[in-house]
Amino acid sequence: MRSAVVVFPGSNRERDAIKALTAITGQAPAVVWHQDVTIPDVDLIVLPGGFSYGDYLRCGAIAARSPAMQDVARKAAAGVRVLGVCNGFQILTEAGLLPGVLMRNANLRFICKEVKLKVANADTDFTRAYGPDQIIRCPVAHHDGNYFADPETLARVEGEGRVAFRYAEGTNPNGSLNDIAGVLNAEGNVLGMMPHPENLIEALHGGLDGRGVFESVVKTLAA
């Protein structure tokens, strides 16, 4: 499986994403600078976490308008899988590739801790390596992860089974509506999630629960 990681000024989790992709897909991802107008032909594009453009204007707002994101939008429309983690999720909502918006955490604090996630839909390209309703551990580290969408959008997202992950067991850290931690686009090939699966993929991390997100894409492509 071929993959690419897009790096923006202020990204800081790209090395984690590169390590995870290398370990799980067996080959190193292409690393793409945000000014590049073309992303190589790959099976999965990852937008890593960080603070692109210092979170100026709104988190992810300026990165969402970068040249590389124009190609991400084109490739997403053509069916290429796109995973946005943390700031990458914020960029995807700002680019209009995912519904809703990530607002300031309800308690106004930067939150860096481990949470529990429930696999809300195990029949997606990003979750099929997990079981239905499986509870996994996953770290979060963000200031703006409070998922919001208008009631009509939220009802549509819920009705179409597009919530991939929810914060579980009372661990919603940020006030997200319906405990939403990760959502898919209507076609199911774009996932945004605030927690960092790439930070729980080897024993030294203290667990392997995050591997499933990447393994799911590998499994999907192999099918």
Binding site: A61, E94, G100, V101, M103, F148
Partner: peptide, 9 residues
């Protein structure tokens, strides 16, 4: 519409 505001919110 394109940048300064996020009209979702």
């Amino acid at each position: 519409d394109r940048l300064l505001a996020n009209t979702v919110i």
